[in-house]
């Protein structure tokens, strides 16, 4: 039983077949549970908004302020309002996924194949997030500056052109693989340690995992905001 509890399954998925397409069911299951919890939490906190914040509303306002500061410092005073919901959603989604994956003992729920875990430990999720960030910064640049957005590629000199084009590919790549690698590595380390020494020893590593998870959410949101800010920045 213990071995079963501690067994590691890497790269196995719970497949859902819908017509021709195949999905990783475990990713959607956990993301729905976690996002459902997040939405319930937020609905409870915003149910009765008062001018003197109390309890949950206080916490949500702190969160909102934190996200606004993040978006404002990276994107700039002029357009941060348009992008704050997106940056905030990225932060909340990644944070809730990472912490949900680390805190909830998913392994107690048996699946026919694969296992439940952080949605961000699946490469599909992180690539989806990173591509959304790429689309966002292109859209932000083009909608704010029109064709002048492409001046960015030859700024400050045309020599930069190949590097800037390369950057458009490395940005989503690094974003997705950083998140995926960190969260998967954390899950694997905890899994291996629980398998080898099922008592006490994994606990510090679990705390380290919580720390990493929070940091990764912050890094992802900050970088996304930074890329958008870079795209809308005016060169003089």
């Amino acid at each position: 039983m213990l071995t079963n509890f501690a067994a590691l399954e890497v790269g196995q998925h719970l497949y859902w077949q819908i017509g021709n397409i195949r999905l990783h069911g475990q990713v959607f299951l956990t993301s729905w549970i976690l996002l459902g919890a997040l939405l319930v939490f937020i609905s409870l906190g915003t149910k009765k908004m008062e001018n003197d914040p109390k309890g949950l509303q206080n916490l949500l306002e702190f969160l909102w302020d934190y996200i606004r500061d993040l978006a404002r410092t990276q994107i700039g005073e002029k357009v941060y309002r348009d992008w704050m919901p997106f940056i905030g959603t990225l932060f909340l989604f990644v944070f809730v996924s990472n912490w949900g994956g680390a805190l909830i003992p998913w392994r107690l729920i048996k699946l026919p194949s694969g296992e439940l875990g952080a949605p961000t430990a699946d490469i599909n999720t992180t690539i989806a997030l990173a591509l959304l960030v790429s689309l966002s910064y292109f859209y932000a640049g083009l909608s704010n500056k029109g064709w002048r957005y492409f001046e960015y590629y030859v700024h400050p000199t045309p020599i930069m052109l190949p590097f800037k084009i390369l950057e458009d590919f490395t940005k989503p790549l690094s974003l997705s693989f950083r998140l995926f690698g960190n969260i998967l590595a954390d899950e694997l380390v905890v899994g291996v340690l629980v398998f080898l020494v099922p008592l006490i020893l994994p606990i510090p590593v679990m705390f380290l995992g919580l720390f990493t998870s929070a940091i990764q959410a912050l890094i992802f949101a900050t970088l996304a905001a930074y890329y958008i800010g870079e795209a809308v920045e005016e060169h003089h």
Binding site: I21, F28, P85, T89, F93, I123, T125, L131
Partner: peptide, 30 residues
């Protein structure tokens, strides 16, 4: 580990939907 399939676009759609939901439920009222 690197099995990329329809999970990717569906997750992207889900995140976009989440952005709109959170905007009307959280970011705007707060």
């Amino acid at each position: 580990l690197f099995d990329i399939n329809a999970t990717l676009p569906l997750m992207a759609i889900q995140v976009v939907a989440l952005t709109y939901i959170l905007n009307s439920l959280f970011f705007k009222p707060v």
